[in-house]
Nucleic acid binder design. Structure first.
Length: 872
DNA sequence: TGACTGGAATCAAGC
DNA sequence: TGGCTTGATTCCAGT
């Protein structure tokens, strides 16, 4: 077992660094020497072992697998990012994110044992001559926590492949080192001696030009073909076929359950519920299992999390196999007492404090408290307190900075790898979006059918720019939070079959995520009707119990359908494009109770208010309220005003209201505010953006911005001009839980205000705004309902990546307005904001200087909120 | 008969 | 400590 694993590992390494030479013979690492891939499986018959164990045994993985030696995707569990290279101590150097140590197989390493193998330090890989992300703090180097070393994430769950249910202590005590089929990073662990490390360095030096590619492999698919897979006649050159037979280990409908059925009773799809209802604490873990993580516990309430348990000997690479690749990892003793909070309060605290700390994009796992802002941000009234998750923008940036969607057929990107929806002429587009609600079914329930489209029928996905031959369209359930798009830990796609289902599909399991594969046929214009995809809800407690799982399921009920296709380009390369649907609320309750705003018009009006605003959506009640709010950079509620709803012109799907007057009618710039519909406490719609315009402004599209090619709806954070963070979906509705204050900051680029603000950024997609020309007295065009196919913005698509705000130009009505003109250097450095401000102010009869004079304080350098005058 | 749906009961946990 | 509230999960019945 060990030997085989080692061989694979070595091959993997070669590929990662572009060494396409013939793989050397089996590498070192005999039994007891190599990582104990098979830990936890020792007592399992290889035939019956779950995939994870087969993996460990050197058998193929479902996903990806073409030629031997192709790195396997790391993301053992949905949501776990593949780690990017990190800056090495020496300038201009990238260093991989290896497992720092590996517990080698040894006596006692079997499942259930405590694992007694020796621990080896794993070498780091340095890739030179690469300009690292400048803003990645070098402290990363010194903070193992950055990648969660020693954190709960590091301890793979025992459930093994697909084991999202309580494992009942399976394999407790045994550690699993990265699977041989795991990501390339797991390779590090394999090079446990100096020579290997030297080889690594040498290899790295050779592949400078392929760094990106190499980086992309930090966690790519397994080279190992799945034994179950079968060739796909219709896609001879489909990249997936290149994955080898595996093709994701296409499995029968119930394969997921089969594979995932962990624990003592794999035959039973679910543990018997003691009393009909399953108790959270029924997991058998001392620490009342997941939800123990108190649903509403707060950092403040709980205080700082106690220091993490002493680091276990095995510290796995974050990118290395996770839950699904491990088996036999300790359960009970290392289940992290995840102090999670589902409230936005928590989310914000984490988010804000985390961003700087998680430059690699990975939250300091297990140490949420550590990064939680003391005194965290209060939970504001607006929005539901659904889970808002941290926004590892920096992580995204570091991770995919500039990476093109071109991959080798032998190393397709993992599911959590952000991909553009468009590349050159290729574009994967959702022609018909799914409904905003789809009640997912539990395993204990029958299927609740396929996801449907808003206008009826089902979602339709189309690949543009290619029609040569059939391709495989992959679909999985992704997250809909503000973090980068990734497989959802609590939802899986569910294949729907039946006579009413016209689209043939196959199920595959890719790194623990169920993937539905369909075929895009040229005769169908490379379009697929997604009538075969339902959504399965996994029990929160099962998922949260997984080792390394940091997401929470509570209130994390929003998903997106993610579609991905790999288009062969010749030369052994493919272009991988991906798109995601609008968010889909999957809970029954929320779907029934939460008001949803799907469209509204206008999107802006004069600060005087008084205009009629029409909202269309659902779940509006006779006593629904519409509240406008504005928040400051610190998230503080600056202004709140309830709009007057015209009940006579309102219905369950329409609300007609009068826009309230803005608090400060002397603003010189458009003011971004938000509104939400409230059906009562905790029953609020996602916030929608709205703008109050000063009389002097009108709105029209900006000329092409340099950001367009890269920006996402998240906008370039921290004043950087490039942000590859996954785009936020361009739809009006946001997250029901989202509180504007906790939104991703954006830059009001239109004003060149380069200081990052924490203004929330929700609201409609730029595409809705483009062309918007708004005078205070001129209503904007009606915002379309959730579009049938609002293309997701993507970092690589210059056409649909208009920054929300930047997309809007505010041209002064009066003559002579030239942002930045005559501005001081300082002003220019701020993008002319000040100058614009000052230039405009006089129109309203007062200048900044005058204000300064009045209040006796120099405000010229004061970074006032965009769109608002300094206090007078 | 089985899949699909909608509704609601029950439970756990926070407030 | 007990009641209320909320969200998750399970169950039931109708189509």
């Amino acid at each position: 077992m060990g030997a085989a694993s080692c061989e694979d590992e070595e091959l993997e390494f070669k590929l990662v660094f572009g060494e396409e030479k013939e793989a050397p013979p089996m590498g070192a690492g005999g039994p007891g020497e190599g990582p104990d891939w098979g830990h936890g499986c020792d007592d399992l018959d290889s035939e019956d072992a779950p995939s994870c164990c087969r993996l460990a045994l050197g058998e193929p993985l479902p996903y990806g697998a073409a030629p031997i030696g192709i790195p396997r995707p790391p993301p053992p569990r949905p949501g776990m990012h593949s780690p990017p290279p990190r800056p090495a101590p020496s300038p201009g150097t990238w260093e991989s994110q290896p497992a720092r140590s590996v517990r080698l197989g040894g006596p006692g390493g079997s499942a259930g044992g405590a694992g007694g193998g020796r621990v080896l330090e794993c070498p780091s890989i340095r890739i030179t001559s690469i300009s690292p992300t400048p803003d990645l703090p070098t402290s990363l180097e010194d903070t193992p926590e950055t990648w969660g070393d020693g954190s709960p994430r590091d301890y793979p769950p025992p459930e093994g492949f697909g084991g999202y249910r309580e494992a009942g202590g399976q394999g407790g005590g045994a550690f699993f080192s990265p699977s041989p089929g795991s990501s390339s990073l797991s390779s590090w662990s394999f090079f446990s001696d100096a020579s290997d490390e030297a080889a690594l360095y040498a290899a790295c030096d050779e592949v400078e030009s392929e760094l990106n590619e190499a980086a992309s492999r930090f966690g790519l698919s397994s080279p190992l073909p799945s034994p179950r897979a079968s060739p796909r006649p219709w896609t001879p050159e489909d990249p997936w076929s290149l994955y080898g037979p595996s093709s994701g280990g296409r499995a029968p409908e119930d394969s997921w359950l089969l594979l995932s059925a962990p624990g003592p009773n794999p035959a039973s799809p679910r543990p018997a519920s003691p009393c009909g209802k399953r108790r959270y604490s029924s997991s058998g873990t001392p620490s009342s299992a997941s939800p123990a993580l108190s649903r509403r516990g707060s950092l403040g309430d709980e205080g700082p999390e106690p220091p993490p348990p002493p680091p276990l000997p095995l510290v796995r690479d974050p990118s290395s196999p996770g839950p699904f690749d491990y088996a036999g990892a300790p359960t009970t003793e290392s289940i992290p007492q995840k102090t999670r909070r589902t409230s936005s309060e928590q989310a914000v605290a984490l988010s804000r404090s985390e961003e700087p700390a998680s430059c690699n994009g990975k939250p300091p796992s297990g140490t949420d408290e550590a990064v939680a802002a003391p005194g965290g941000l209060r939970k504001e009234a607006a929005g539901m307190d659904y889970l808002a998750v941290p926004s590892p923008l920096a992580w995204s940036k570091a991770r995919i900075g500039g990476h093109s969607p071109i991959f080798r057929t032998s190393a397709l990107p993992p599911l959590d790898w952000p991909l553009p929806s468009q590349y050159e002429q290729l574009e994967l587009r959702i022609e018909v979006q799914p409904r905003a609600h789809h009640r997912a079914h539990y395993e204990t329930e029958g299927s609740r059918g396929a996801v449907k489209a808003a206008p009826g029928g089902h979602p339709v996905v189309k690949l543009l720019g290619y029609s040569e031959k059939p391709l495989t369209l992959q679909m999985f359930i992704g997250t809909a939070d503000e973090r980068s798009l990734r497989p959802h830990a609590f939802y899986q796609v569910h294949r729907i079959t039946g006579k009413m289902v016209a689209t043939a599909s196959y199920e595959a399991v890719v790194s623990g995520t169920k993937v539905l594969e369909m075929t895009l046929l040229p005769e169908n214009n490379m379009a697929a009707n997604i009538d075969c995809a339902g959504i399965l809800k996994l029990r929160n407690s099962d998922i949260e119990l997984r080792k390394g799982e940091t997401d929470i399921g509570r209130k994390n009920t929003r998903v997106r359908l993610v579609f991905r296709v790999h288009v062969p380009q010749g030369g052994g390369k493919v272009v991988s494009v991906q798109t995601a649907s609008v968010p889909i609320e999957c809970s029954q309750r929320s779907a029934q109770e939460l008001p949803q705003v799907e469209a509204y018009s206008p999107s802006a009006c004069s600060v005087r208010g008084g205009e009629e605003l029409v909202l269309t959506g659902s779940n509006f009640l006779p006593d629904s309220k519409v509240v406008f709010i504005e928040r400051g950079p610190d998230g503080k509620l600056l202004w709140e005003e309830e709009a007057a709803v015209n009940r006579l012109q309102s219905s369950e799907v329409t609300l007609t209201l009068t826009v309230p007057e803005y608090s400060n009618k002397r603003v010189s710039r458009p003011v971004q505010v938000y509104f939400y519909v409230s059906n009562g406490r905790r029953k609020r719609s996602p916030t929608q953006s709205f703008k109050f315009l000063p009389v002097i402004f009108k709105e029209e599209p900006l000329p092409d911005s340099s950001l367009r090619g890269f920006s996402s709806t998240s906008g370039p954070p921290f004043g950087t001009d490039m942000d590859f963070s996954p785009p936020r979906p361009p739809y009006p509705s946001s997250y029901p839980h989202e509180d504007p204050a906790y939104e991703t900051p954006y830059l009001s680029e239109s004003f060149g205000y380069n200081t990052p603000t924490l203004y929330p950024q929700t609201g409609p997609p730029p595409s809705y705004r483009s062309g918007l020309r708004m005078f205070p007295e001129t209503a904007a065009p009606f915002r379309p309902p959730l579009p049938p196919s609002p293309p997701l913005e993507d970092p690589f698509n210059p056409q649909n990546t208009v920054h929300p705000l930047p997309a809007e130009g505010y041209n002064e009505v009066g003559p002579g307005y030239t942002p930045g003109e005559g501005a001081s250097e300082q002003e220019k450095s701020r993008g002319g904001y000040s100058s614009g401000f000052r230039d405009n102010v006089p129109i309203q009869g007062i200048t900044l200087e005058e204000v300064s004079e009045i209040i006796g304080r120099d405000l010229t350098g004061f970074p006032a909120r965009p769109g608002e005058e300094p206090p007078a």
